[in-house]
Structure formats: structure tokens, C-alpha cells
């Protein structure tokens, strides 16, 4: 490069984004406050039994949330993910008696394929993800209900293939839940060290710039939905193991908590901002919220209201208004 005299440009002063920092610390603060409230009400909360219960109820939510996170990072949403997990439990219950562990793999392959198809349709036909996955939601909930006869299917033969998920313990804590936390950490690290680790973020923040730099947004978007399908399947396996059954609506009630976990952790619904550790914190908040509400004596029937309000509030806090033009 020639060293011709370069004229000066306006000086740049690092602007500290106070609001951004506050929002990024907020989830952790909320979690700490929740833990403090609960322990003050129930001193035995720190005991091993309640931590175990907490982790067990968090694991499927965290799995669903991690899958959804990839999609939300790209600026989209997958509304069909919980239904896909339910559908997965039905498939598992039907397949596991004959296929055993192979049935688990087949089910995971199926849910992954569902995600792949979602991503393919959205990326190739260039349609809004919420509406495409709303259609998928109907499709797979209908299929799940139809093939299960709208009833819960007990898993007895072949349960060994998934039984370890609930049975194995490490230091009295469920191994499976710990593994899910490890998965979250691995994802977080991968996003840092992989050369393409920031690709999901880049789509969410600047899809056109990425495209015009030769990035394959189609492939990355399909990958996000495919991962969402895979993680939905994993959540399904976990639920089926803990319930010892498959059911066409088994995971449906986790849709809202899982989306809430993603956004409350600080991943913006507009895409591009967030990560796996944030999602982990979000999932912890969601389960703590449930425990916390009952600890302070709130009727469990208020739970849905809290989820609804929390999800809207979290979206309001994390949304980046400068980057959305016409909001539909």
C-alpha cells in the first residue's frame, strides 16, 4: 500500500452504549434477585432436592430455547418448534418398542428434517418465518394427533434406550440436565472460535451486507431452522423419558416458556444480538419464576399471564428500533 499522505477524518470517540449494557446485565440481575427472593422464603431451596427438580424442569425448556435461539438470531422465529417436539414424542413412543435406540435416532432425524424443510421453504420461497412455521405448527400438530389417535402412548418396551436420561446422576444431579448446560456452553464457545460462528448474528443484523459480501444466507438460514428441529427432537426425547410416554400435545405448553427464555435472556427478537449463555440464563429465570411465584404465594393459574407479560416486556427491552422499518 502506498504511503501517500492520508488526510485526517473526523475523530471518533467511543460512545458507551449505557442502555445496551444495562439490558445485557439485566437478565443476570433478575436471576440473582429471583434466587434471593426464593431462598428468603424457602431456606431449604438451596438443598440438593430442589436444585435437582429445578434442573429437571429446566432441561427441556433450555433445549427448545437453544434451538429457537438460532432462528431468532437470524431475525426469524419458529412457531412450530414445541409442536415438533410433541410430534417427536409420539414418533418415539411408536418406534422405540421395535427399534430401541435406533428409534431415538430415527425420531431425531425426523424432527431435524422437519426443521430443514421449514428452513428450505422460508429461505427459498422468501416468506416470513412466522407464517410458514404457523402453517407447520398446524401440519405437525394435526399429524401428531392423527397418528396417536389423540391419546398418550405409554412407553414400556424399549424404555431402557432413553431411561438413562432420568436415571443417571452426577453428584445427585441429573446427568442429562448437566449435559444440556454443557451443550449451551459448547454452542457459546463455538460461536466465538469458529470462523463462521457469527454467521447467524450477521444475518440478523445485516442480511444484505452479508449477501453482498458473498455469504450464503440461504444456507445459514436453513441451518438455523434445521438446528431448531434437532433441538426440538432432543427436547422431545427428554420429555418422553421423564413422562415415560409420548403425547401429541406433550411439549405444546413449553412453546411460550421457551420463547420467553430466549428473549428474556437478552436475545433480541429483531435478530443479531444474543447467545447460548444468555439463553441459559433466560431458561433459568423462567423456571425460577415458576418456583418464585409459588414461593411468594401467587396462584399457579397466574402463570400464563406472567409468561405473556414477561415475553412482551422482554421483547420491548431488547428490540432494536433503529433497525426495523415497517413493523408488521
Amino acid at each position: 500500500m502506498t504511503q501517500t499522505l492520508l488526510t485526517s477524518s473526523p475523530r471518533v470517540i467511543e460512545q458507551i452504549d449505557w442502555k445496551g449494557r444495562a439490558v445485557s446485565i439485566l437478565p443476570l440481575a433478575v436471576l440473582v434477585v429471583l434466587v434471593l427472593i426464593v431462598t428468603s422464603q424457602q431456606p431449604n431451596f438451596v438443598g440438593i432436592a430442589s436444585v435437582r427438580g429445578l434442573l429437571e424442569s429446566m432441561a427441556p425448556i433450555l433445549l427448545l430455547a437453544l434451538g429457537q435461539m438460532f432462528v431468532i438470531l437470524t431475525g426469524g422465529i419458529d412457531l412450530s418448534f414445541a409442536v415438533t417436539a410433541s410430534f417427536g414424542t409420539v414418533l418415539l413412543a411408536l418406534w422405540i418398542p421395535e427399534l430401541g435406540a435406533l428409534g431415538v435416532l430415527a425420531m431425531l432425524a425426523t424432527t431435524t428434517l422437519i426443521g430443514l424443510i421449514n428452513g428450505f421453504v422460508i429461505a427459498k420461497a422468501q416468506i416470513p418465518s412466522f407464517i410458514a412455521t404457523l402453517g407447520a405448527l398446524g401440519l405437525y400438530s394435526g399429524l401428531g394427533l392423527a397418528i396417536s389417535g389423540a391419546s398418550t402412548i405409554r412407553i414400556s418396551t424399549g424404555y431402557e434406550a432413553i431411561g438413562w436420561i432420568t436415571d443417571l446422576r452426577v453428584a445427585q444431579l441429573p446427568l442429562s440436565a448437566l449435559l444440556v448446560i454443557v451443550v449451551a456452553i459448547v454452542i457459546s464457545v463455538a460461536m466465538r472460535v469458529l470462523a463462521s460462528g457469527k454467521s447467524f448474528h450477521a444475518i440478523g443484523l445485516a442480511e444484505k451486507a452479508l449477501l453482498m459480501s458473498g455469504g450464503s444466507t440461504v444456507r445459514i438460514r436453513i441451518l438455523a431452522f434445521t438446528l431448531c428441529g434437532l433441538f426440538s427432537g432432543l427436547a422431545g426425547v427428554m420429555l418422553a423419558a421423564s413422562q415415560r410416554s409420548g403425547g401429541p400435545t406433550l411439549a405444546d405448553s413449553l412453546q411460550l416458556p421457551a420463547i420467553a427464555a430466549v428473549v428474556i435472556g437478552g436475545t433480541a427478537i429483531t435478530g443479531g444480538v444474543g447467545g447460548a449463555i444468555k439463553t441459559l440464563i433466560g431458561a433459568l429465570i423462567i423456571v425460577m419464576l415458576r418456583v418464585g411465584l409459588s414461593a411468594v404465594g401467587v396462584d399457579p393459574s397466574f402463570e400464563q399471564i406472567v409468561y405473556g407479560v414477561v415475553i412482551i416486556a422482554a421483547v420491548v427491552l431488547t428490540i432494536d428500533r433503529s433497525r426495523i422499518g415497517v413493523v408488521k
Partner: peptide, 26 residues
Amino acid sequence: IEGIAQSMSVQENIFLADSRPVSVGP
């Protein structure tokens, strides 16, 4: 819109088109 990836860092922008010069495998 099409040049810079907004809200990303200067470094991330520099490697937006090609990160192979600074990566080994993935």
C-alpha cells in the same frame, strides 16, 4: 445497508467476506 454489517465490530466487518486468511479449518 449493503456495505457494512451494522452493529458489528470493525474486526467482524473486515472478515465478513473471507475469514480464511485468519482461520485454520473451521
